[in-house]
Design a protein around this nucleic acid. Structure first.
Length: 777
DNA sequence: AAGGGCGCACTTTTGA
DNA sequence: TCAAAAGTGCGC
């Protein structure tokens, strides 16, 4: 019989005698299914030196075979290495965990040669070799079996390899969102000391549950939570910081209380796996903090800020209670109730956030082939890696093993010096997907790169300006194949979206797919220049930027010759004084000259440039401000500074009135001196980008981080440190205090006036003849 | 367990 | 006193 299923999770089976993949899904009747498949055996390739024939090599290997008892088969297979056909030994083993060591030892035995694909985990091997796709519909010939103690409706063994089928629908997933509350009396809560006080749970069947611990004993709560998960049997479990905080805390507490956190569909416990994501067998565990990573607009990633940004129903009710406030609140009943209530609302908001954002992760997972629980945790480079692995296998290419490579920098994009001051009627012209298109057009790829010194006929290669790398025009390189396909996919999706109602389910699915395709396409250039990439080729990235500079330079020259005045430009865009006819001429010329599309991206009725590159503010036709690069859009300035600068820009762009701007700034400074500005607006946040002990200088946020750690707070790389500058002598780093631990009267107002407000205001006002003295109150 | 790239502005610390 | 280095976060 056939089973059609939406693939939720896959993992390697454990107890079976042969390597087995377990596919967890939902079938087209809404039944939860488990399919066990043993069709794909672990293997790797050994590519000999070109001198040696594969068959003689095979014989030598067979002689030494006693040392490799887990080898079950050795075959000769023709594969491609950077586009060239080569005979390789395909060495199949009975145990996937033996591959890496075997590859090493076989290299020693057989002499010079190279191993490939020995570092692919069996689940990756499986999704690569079979045309089976996570977060998508697949079809498989199956036979029913009985399985004990597994939480599915139907259990099967696969009789064929599953294949992807054409169906865009995302089935109704049972989602469970949870939020845990743990409180440290002083400092961060610690699982070896502090119990889980409460867990809020919200499910997609509109059920809300809040478990509260009895006194110091959270045994019952942990057991109840486990039982609820098993009873509700979710397909997806969503949390916040659940990869790094939520699940690890629960796991530690359960260990301590000797309770088994059997939330997996096979009764297993969660564990940390690839990329640091937490895996729950048979389900998708999703950390909404990872999803928040795809929303750069939200600077401080709290559930509250995400809720507001996405305008979910609970947006008005969810409030951030900082970690440092919890200990105090927990001391009395009112505070406790507030904390527990907060935990409940967090869970509800998380459920809504998951429902509001899930389409993007689903599409990215289906596109890259990474399981849904991994795809948002995986760094961008690994998403591209995953996609390329699938495409390479399809093309018969050997997949390079991930190795540490030497790292080279190269020249990047061109940024023009802006024409300073106010300009009216400006249009921004963007080349669409410039780097991917250049990579495609000039066949930039590791397999088409001509080695230095190699002599080739001039007209068989593209010669890249400035850097003089050469790439064969034919055949199509790996990146050209991949990028053409991605660019085509995007066009197809866009075409399909056309005519669909904007709010419709299918439209949203397609919109998020288009977004996923676009982001993956644009990531390919950076990937090619990343030393960790399997298909790393500095020459490819370097050529893309060289071509980009060439394109922009020629475009500027053409614009000038057409009589278009160029105000500014960065990488793939130019800002010109709008003249629609001439702009159209430029567009046509670019299409003809480079086969690139120019899009009219923004129209500014007025735009302001200072001397700085990458920083400007424009007024859009609807009278809203578009602010780029300036402090207003930076997360490392106080709110008060950002507000002042935005106010100034508004006065300048809308009313062209420096006088009013000056008055506004003075008014703010007065408010500040009268202590009328709340502490929250004075807080400065900076991210810890490395372990505290690695810092070479005593920066304010690092010093504050040290203080907090001393007090018992956990701070790790990636955390934002919030501090306020206090009165007193010494360097700034000696005056910075945790924003939670400073009284309003101790704030160093002069610092905020002189080093926050005046600089950001003057950055703009300087151009309009305003002197700093005029701002002094 | 966890790096896509380079170009740029800007503040503060450091060290001569 | 001052230039260089360290550090952050942005643009594309």
């Amino acid at each position: 019989m056939k089973c059609r299923f939406f693939l939720i999770d896959l993992n390697e089976g454990r107890s079976e005698s042969q390597p087995t993949i377990r596919l967890w899904g939902i079938d087209d009747n809404g039944k939860r299914v488990l399919i066990q498949s043993s069709q794909i055996k672990p293997y790797f390739y050994y590519l000999p030196e070109e001198k040696e024939t594969s068959n003689s090599l095979r014989e030598r290997l067979m002689k030494g075979r006693a040392d490799f008892p887990k080898i079950t088969a050795v075959e000769v297979e023709t594969k491609k290495l950077l586009g060239r056909a080569r005979d390789a030994l395909k060495i199949t083993c009975s145990d996937s965990h033996a591959l890496a060591a075997y590859a090493r030892n076989i290299r020693k035995l057989l002499g010079k040669g190279e191993a490939f694909e020995e570092d692919l985990r069996l689940t990756v091997r499986y999704t690569t070799d079979a045309d089976v796709t996570p977060s998508a519909w697949n079809e498989c010939e199956v036979e029913r079996i009985e399985t004990q103690r597994v939480a599915v409706d139907l259990s099967f063994v696969a009789k064929s390899l599953p294949v992807r089928i054409d169906n865009d629908a995302v089935p109704a997933l049972r989602i469970l969102a949870f939020s845990i509350l743990a409180v440290g009396e002083r400092g961060s809560a610690r699982p070896e000391r502090d119990p889980v006080r409460a867990i809020g749970v919200a499910t997609s069947q509109a059920r809300f549950e809040t478990f509260v611990a009895e006194g110091e004993d959270d045994s019952r709560l942990l057991a109840d939570f486990t039982a609820l998960v098993r009873k509700f049997d979710p397909d997806m479990i969503a949390g916040y910081e659940s990869n790094n905080a939520g699940w690890p805390y629960l796991i530690e507490r359960c260990k301590f209380r000797k309770i088994r956190l059997t939330v997996g569909r096979d009764g297993s416990e969660p564990h940390t796996s690839a990329y640091g994501h937490v895996s729950v067998s048979g389900r998708t565990s999703l950390d909404m903090l990872d999803v928040a990573g795809s929303m750069p607009e939200v600077k401080v990633k709290t559930i509250e800020n995400l809720a507001k940004f996405l305008q979910i129903p609970s947006a008005g009710r969810v409030k951030t209670i900082e970690e440092f406030e919890r200990g105090e609140l927990w001391k009395d009943d009112t505070g406790r109730r507030a904390l527990i209530q907060n935990t409940r609302i967090n869970a509800q908001a998380l459920l809504e956030l998951t429902e509001a954002t899930i389409n993007y992760p689903v599409q990215l997972s289906a596109l890259t082939g990474l399981p849904l629980d991994q795809v948002m945790t995986a760094p961008v480079g690994f998403r591209v890696d995953s996609y390329l692995i699938k495409q390479a296998h399809r093309a018969g290419e050997l997949i390079p093993t991930k190795i540490e490579q030497p790292f080279y920098t190269y020249r990047g994009a061109l940024v023009l010096e802006p024409k300073t001051g106010l300009h009216d009627n400006i249009v921004v012209l963007d080349f669409t997907s410039m780097y991917p298109n250049l990579m495609k057009t000039y066949n930039l790829s590791p397999d088409t790169l001509v080695k230095p010194g190699e002599s080739v006929s001039e007209d068989s290669v593209f010669v890249i300006p400035e850097v003089n790398h050469r790439f064969y025009k034919k055949p199509d390189g790996f990146y050209r194949i991949v990028l053409s396909s991605l660019i085509e996919q995007r066009k197809a999706v866009k075409k399909e979206m056309h005519g669909l109602a904007e709010g419709s389910t299918r439209y949203i699915v397609l919109r998020e797919r288009e977004r996923a395709v676009k982001i993956l396409t644009n990531a390919c250039y950076g990937y090619a220049g990343w030393a960790g990439a399997r298909w790393y080729a500095k020459e490819v990235a370097e050529s893309a930027t060289a071509l980009g500079r060439d394109v922009i330079n020629k475009t500027i020259a053409k614009a000038n010759s057409l009589g278009l005045q160029v105000i500014y430009g960065d990488t793939d865009s130019i800002f010109v004084v709008d003249d629609p006819k001439k702009v159209k001429q430029l567009e046509d010329w670019a299409k003809e000259e480079f086969d690139l599309d120019i899009k009219r991206e923004h129209e500014y009725t007025r735009v302001l440039f200072t001397e700085a590159q990458k920083r400007y503010a424009g007024l859009l036709p609807d009278d809203t401000l578009d602010i780029v690069g300036l402090e207003v859009v930076r997360g490392d300035w106080s709110d008060i500074a950002r507000q002042v600068q935005e106010q100034v820009l508004t006065r300048i762009l809308r009313e062209q009135s420096a006088e009013k701007a000056v008055e506004d700034v003075r008014a703010t400074i007065r408010r500040l001196r009268h202590n009328e500005v709340p502490m929250a607006d004075l807080t400065i946040r900076k991210t810890l980008t490395k372990p505290i002990e690695d810092y070479a200088v005593r920066a304010p946020h690092v010093e504050v981080a040290k203080m907090l750690v001393k007090q018992g707070w956990d701070l790790t790389v990636g955390d934002k440190v919030a501090y306020v500058i206090a009165k007193g002598p010494g360097k700034l780093f000696q005056k910075a205090k945790p924003s939670s631990q400073l009284r309003a009267e101790d704030v160093d107002i002069d610092y905020y006036v002189d080093n926050q407000i005046k600089p950001v205001a003057m950055r703009i006002l300087e151009r309009f003849g305003v002197s700093e003295r005029q701002l002094t109150v």
